[in-house]
Design a protein around this nucleic acid. Structure first.
Lengths: 204, 204
DNA sequence: ATTTAGTTTAACCAACTGGTTAACAAAGAT
DNA sequence: ATCTTTGTTAACCAGTTGGTTAAACTAAAT
């Protein structure tokens, strides 16, 4: 079985663990399956990561460190709200196609163990709303967008962009689409969603 | 430990199984824990439901049969799109507070086993978009709402209403809120979200 | 009172799971 | 050359897990 890279064992383990944990979750993942997928002995997993829990945490932090910069883009750069929304919806879709299991993995595991997020908050680069709050307040005051709290707007942006991928099987069933049609539906959302949000907050 | 009802054993099992499965998922749930919570012997679970898988399916179908009517309300009744949106966002929030684990449970388990939805589709009352499609097309044509496909609108409505509860721990961390403040944030969304959607599709 | 059917229990079991161990190989370090 | 560190393996282990079994209890029907 060809490995993705002929790199060090530690990396091969992390690669394999990522795949297994992200598709089966902490509880559903089996150390043996990870070892098989990495092409090594099960004892090696413990040699490098000591326990299932620590290996899982390595995978989780890794996953989160991919998602966080995406969110920070919308929170901390200097463009207007409208530009941010357009860029984010487009960028996020490109990102999510590369990492389809990622948002569901993070959400699922944080629900299983909500305290785990405390460990992530200590990390630098954890998304922070402060700057975005000021910007929204400013644009509301100047009448360039309708009155809305930064929290609600941020939740709406996340919801519209992330939810369809988290609830993919449900949405495919409701809209009676196959994988190809679903992909097209998501592709359409690149512009659809930003227009939707911008219309919603555009002043009358 | 006082049971919720002094009803039949089968019901007590289903009650206990619901709690355990919905908070821990299929993989994380333990038959012993369900038995303990139901105050009975583990063998009884198999006597009434034969296997973990079948007990799980009973719980899952039960959960889905609670959610489906909520969605059908927006798809199949006769009020205007605007009225539907206002009613749905308000009703759904009331509903979700009663069943906080429900959407996450359904989404999580469908992602684990997407084929499972086929079994649900056979069931009567499975949400169907056809009527909603006609209505959206009609209102678009008559200019009472901006051009949008029924699928995209439906996804947006679901996303804005369901996502915050699915991603609760994530959102609480980003917005730096405790449980009480989060509840208030969700309460605000009863009107906030419907206004947001209606503004987004209101003709210029 | 005895049969019968449904219900409940304690004890048991084989398979699986995360984790350990001890022996061994490769590669620097001395 | 040999010692030490690091990497790797097969075999093993104890605890857990879903599931089974056979016997016992219960209550209604005969």
């Amino acid at each position: 079985m060809a490995r993705t890279k002929d790199e060090n064992t530690e990396g091969q383990i992390l690669d394999a663990a990522k795949k297994v944990f992200q598709s089966k979750g902490m509880d559903g993942a089996r150390m043996q399956e990870i070892a098989d997928k990495a092409g090594i002995n099960k004892a090696m997993l413990h040699y490098y990561y000591r326990s299932k829990q620590l290996l899982f945490e390595a995978v989780f932090k890794n996953a989160f460190s991919l998602l966080a910069p995406q969110l920070n883009a919308i929170l901390n750069d200097d463009s207007s709200i409208e530009d941010k929304i357009r860029n984010f919806t487009s960028d996020y879709l490109t990102f999510i196609i590369k990492h389809p299991y990622l948002p569901n993995f993070i959400i699922q595991e944080l629900n299983r163990n909500p305290d785990f997020i405390a460990k992530l908050k200590e990390n630098t680069g954890f998304p922070n709303l402060e700057k975005f709050k000021l910007q929204v307040a400013y644009e509301v005051e100047h009448g360039s967008i309708k009155p809305i709290s930064a929290e609600q707007l941020f939740i709406n942006i996340m919801a519209l962009n992330i939810f369809p991928f988290v609830a993919k099987p449900l949405i495919m069933a409701f809209t009676d689409t196959d994988s190809t049609t679903f992909k097209q539906l998501m592709e359409d959302r690149k512009t659809e969603v930003s227009n939707f949000i911008i219309n919603a907050i555009k002043p009358a």
